[in-house]
Amino acid sequence: MIQIYHNNRCTKSRQALQELEKSGQAFEVIYYLETPPAKAQLEELIKKLNIKPFELIRKGEKIYTENYKGKTLGDAEWIDAMVENPILIERPIIVSENKAIIARPTERIKEILR
Rank of each mutant, 00 (worst) to 15 (best):
R104L: 02
E107I: 03
G74M: 04
K22W: 06
Y5T: 09
E77D: 05
T106Q: 03
K39D: 04
L17I: 07
E19A: 13
K22F: 12
G74Y: 04
I87E: 12
I101Q: 02
L49S: 04
N98P: 01
M1T: 13
E43Q: 15
P37G: 10
R104V: 00
E97N: 15
E34H: 10
I63P: 01
R91H: 10
R58L: 06
L56A: 10
E111L: 06
I30T: 06
E21R: 14
I51N: 00
P105A: 08
S96Y: 05
K69M: 13
L113Y: 01
S23C: 10
A103W: 00
A26R: 12
I109R: 02
N50A: 14
R114D: 13
V83K: 08
A100C: 07
G24H: 02
N7L: 14
A81P: 07
K99S: 05
E28D: 09
E84H: 11
Q15H: 09
V29C: 11
I30V: 15
A81E: 12
N67V: 09
A26C: 02
K59E: 12
T11Y: 11
T65S: 10
M1L: 09
A100P: 04
K110P: 00
K22M: 08
N98F: 07
G70R: 06
R58P: 03
E44K: 14
R91C: 04
P86R: 11
I87W: 07
P92A: 06
M1V: 12
E84V: 10
A40H: 09
A26H: 09
T35G: 00
F27G: 02
I102W: 00
L88E: 07
